[in-house]
Design a protein around this nucleic acid. Structure first.
Lengths: 224, 224, 224, 224
DNA sequence: GATGAATGAGATTTCATTCAT
DNA sequence: AATGAATGAAATCTCATTCAT
């Protein structure tokens, strides 16, 4: 177990600085709108230095970000949200667990505001490029794989309706994403008198989404 | 009410041809990837002619498409999905009406495959540009305004849970969009053994979304 | 037989202007040293216009020049230098014919000074690039094919020594080229008190080369 | 005469290693195509170290190679090819001596394959750069100076035709070069059914060139 | 009104060279 | 003395837009 050399540590720090700059620029301008020039400038490095660290340039920066910040982060959040498998064996327990997941996802995204923005806005853009698309899909599939496990458990135990698990996973992630995006729009456009999403704490957001998705939009007495 | 002159009619036809070409190219290449050259070529017009009809060029084409095809289409679908206000006064009626809406939305998007693609993939990209963003928001707000009306009615009558109506509208549209996007991914990547969305008829899609959103994911007996 | 339209004629003229500018720049700076910017500037066109006419940029300009000016010109000179096949049936006749060829080649190159320079200095550089190399070889082979015909005729008739014809063709061309290159060096570097080539009229040059190659460097009485 | 210190000897060895690496890379990629990075890597030194030994970088490496390997080598070959001045006093003796020179030149180039390649392909490229050109010319002139001596001797003795000696020297070197280059092309492009140069031993090559240049291409009986 | 040639700003990327360690 | 990370000038190529015909 050899500690990283000083040189190595510094290299990592610079790498992180570049990724941070790239993230900010991608978030602000979008993938196509971002220029390596601006990323370099914001990272306070020469343009050439960016290419030393990321020889494939913009693409490499984008994929590294997606990988390290977005996919990695989601993975962690999902894993940590289901500490106890037994919890998923009753409807109430499942609700609690998924409510916790949703809240964690909201919090996670709030923490990584820029990452979220990029993820939300650009996530599907690379689909135009066959090569990147494959990589992307692979990474995201890993996230959904992780989420499918508890969903299937909850369905198996009868806590959730019997539905295909993977689409349900997409539903969950999609609604968190959609909610946050709407909130974001609202924040950017305070003139809108009619908010797209109720502004609030992560708990509020989680309540809204959980109620809609798990309890259903129909008035509860209708299910008697 | 003066009939449009022959000249005027021809102008409209050329305009439509340009929009159709633009839609196809945007859908295939994305906004940034599309070139005016290719649009002109596919429309079988000179590049300069495009600029005669759309002096603001690529942006104008994009916005016009969003406006005429996407927003206009959604508007129509929403309006036609709630023929009878009374239907919304009971939970069962509301479910039927919204199920009908969801199904119509899915069908509508399936009909306009290219438009869907573009809408899904590029819809939020222009947000990067302040000027365009405002226009965009305005148009989309009109769609949501239309959708808020029946939602509020259903809430007022007790058919739906008391929740803020506009976020619910976003929820609805977002889930249709998300579902279609997932289905699209599945179609593009047939190697995926684990589909993101259950492939099927618009009716199947509508069932899935309606059940999840209106009845809730939790096993129904839990609500007894 | 439809005359080229005015538009077409003008296009050709612009094309020629670009090629001329490219030739000048290539000759002055070499292939790698030349920049499209400078070619455009010297042609008095925008950089983009160059790419309209030669979508493959620098490579395309270079190859077009090689093709149209160098290879085409050589072909013509060779063809015109052997008007009478019978001439090649005696040593004296063959000497006359090849002397005429050499003189024409020298004159041709003098006329196209820039082309010569480029040809001489860059002719073999593209060999580094496999794709271009093949094209190049093809074109040059055509020139040598043309030259091999009279050489073989002269050998068959006993006018020339029995030697492999193609290498002899290369010998001929190589010596013209080498002579001109040396002369060029001498011209560029007038400080050299010891000229590499005797400066003079094309006739002088042709005499020198013809004597060396056809009569041999050895004193003639040695052949008695 | 102080023996080089151990330190000095090691320095020389590193220098040679760098030159060898540079030669290989120049030969493979050409001057412009070569990168200092690749040279450093192949030499197994840091890039900075290259600049310690050759402060003027790529140019310096190229010139040093030309100087030490090419020019130096040629000088040696020429010097060693005329061991006996008397030999040049008869046509037969002169033929023998120059035949020996040509054969040695061919062998020399074959031994230094990479150097040959570079010399052939890049030899004239630096002429584009005024500063380098002067240096280059100086070095090459030394080679020709060496070759001019025996040529003038042979002319003075009546063994060779009375012709300007320096152009004859260029003629000689040019033909060796041209022959080798053609052979090289043939080797690189084995598909060519019509070889530009007869493949063979250095002796074959020397025979071909000597016959052409010294005896002349015309059938020998014509000189009776 | 239709056209498409001309344009040039701007994007990505490379690489010789410097210099702090 | 050896190193290689940092640099930024410079190159190629693209494409939205203009405008003379």
């Amino acid at each position: 177990m050899n500690a990283p050399s000083r040189r190595e540590r510094e290299r990592q720090m610079r790498r992180q600085a570049m990724l941070a700059a790239a993230l900010a620029v991608f978030a602000e301008k979008g993938f196509d709108g971002a220029t390596v020039d601006e990323i370099a400038e914001r990272a306070e490095f020469g343009k050439g230095t960016i290419y030393n660290y990321f020889p494939d340039g913009k693409d490499a920066l984008f994929l590294a970000l997606l990988d390290e910040l977005v996919v990695g982060g989601l993975h962690r959040v999902i894993r940590d949200s289901f500490p106890d498998a037994d919890e998923l064996s009753t409807p109430a327990g499942a609700r609690t667990a998924f409510h916790r997941l949703i809240r964690s996802l909201v919090e996670h995204h709030r923490d990584e505001d820029d990452a979220l923005l990029m993820f939300l806005k650009e996530g599907h853009r690379m689909a135009f490029d066959a090569g990147k698309s494959a990589l992307l899909a692979e990474h995201f599939n890993a996230v959904f794989d992780a989420l499918v496990v508890p969903i299937e458990a909850a369905i198996a135990s009868g806590a959730l309706r019997p539905m295909p698990a993977r689409p349900v996973a997409h539903l969950l992630m999609g609604n968190v994403r959609g909610y946050l995006m709407a909130e974001l729009d609202a924040r950017c456009d305070p003139s809108a008198t009619l908010p797209a999403a109720p502004y609030g704490t992560p708990a509020d957001a989680a309540d809204f989404i959980t109620t809609a998705l798990f309890d259903g939009l129909l008035a509860s007495d209708s299910k008697a």
